[in-house]
Amino acid sequence: MSKILSTHVLDATDGTPAAGVRVELVSPDGGVLASAVTDSDGRVAEIAPEGLPAATYSLVFATGEYFAARGRETFYPEVTVTFVLDDPQRGYHVPLLLSPFAYSTYRGS
């Protein structure tokens, strides 16, 4: 089982953490395994506290809800980041840099 799966969302439009973004962890078969909301620092410190076996998972970020709550239009109502968890003994961090009309992600540490 994996040690930790975490995420961090930053709002590039104003250079601040994206607090209040709903995030779902989705299993290889499409089922929702867990959900969380980013804290005041834009983080979910641990979305799968029980650990995860090696497989391909997705994190789905409710970006449309986040921008709507701030009165902003967005092109992406949600962002799905699919990744391979291949070593259950290490921690995984999946950051998201977000703006209303673009996003980027990378394998964090």
Rank of each mutant, 00 (worst) to 15 (best):
1 M>E: 11
65 E>L: 12
31 G>D: 09
10 L>S: 15
24 E>F: 07
46 E>R: 03
99 S>R: 07
79 V>C: 07
87 D>N: 15
63 T>I: 05
7 T>N: 12
66 Y>D: 06
84 V>N: 09
92 Y>P: 09
84 V>D: 10
48 A>V: 08
96 L>N: 04
26 V>E: 10
15 G>N: 14
95 P>H: 01
32 V>C: 06
4 I>P: 01
36 A>P: 02
55 A>D: 11
40 S>E: 11
75 F>M: 13
59 L>Q: 12
15 G>W: 00
100 P>E: 02
108 G>N: 10
84 V>S: 11
51 G>P: 09
104 S>G: 06
84 V>F: 14
87 D>I: 01
29 D>Q: 12
80 T>P: 04
34 A>M: 06
91 G>I: 02
45 A>K: 15
83 F>N: 00
48 A>S: 08
109 S>F: 09
61 F>M: 08
46 E>A: 09
26 V>K: 07
99 S>V: 01
58 S>H: 02
47 I>C: 07
9 V>M: 12
8 H>A: 10
16 T>S: 15
86 D>S: 14
48 A>P: 00
90 R>N: 06
36 A>R: 05
37 V>Y: 01
31 G>K: 14
72 R>A: 13
39 D>L: 10
76 Y>N: 02
46 E>Q: 14
99 S>L: 05
37 V>P: 08
73 E>C: 06
65 E>D: 14
85 L>M: 03
84 V>Y: 14
67 F>R: 12
69 A>W: 12
107 R>S: 11
3 K>W: 01
108 G>F: 04
81 V>T: 03
18 A>P: 09
18 A>S: 08
53 P>C: 09
25 L>H: 13
57 Y>D: 02
20 G>S: 05
108 G>H: 04
39 D>G: 13
92 Y>F: 09
104 S>A: 13
32 V>S: 13
4 I>V: 13
65 E>W: 02
79 V>Q: 07
87 D>T: 09
53 P>E: 14
70 R>E: 04
45 A>E: 15
56 T>E: 10
82 T>P: 00
56 T>H: 03
58 S>D: 03
71 G>T: 06
91 G>L: 04
52 L>N: 06
25 L>G: 06
22 R>Q: 14
30 G>S: 09
20 G>P: 07
67 F>L: 01
2 S>D: 05
9 V>S: 11
79 V>I: 11
49 P>H: 07
61 F>T: 02
27 S>I: 03
47 I>H: 05
6 S>M: 12
11 D>P: 07
84 V>K: 14
85 L>W: 02
43 R>N: 15
58 S>K: 14
99 S>D: 09
49 P>K: 07
44 V>Y: 03
18 A>E: 06
106 Y>T: 06
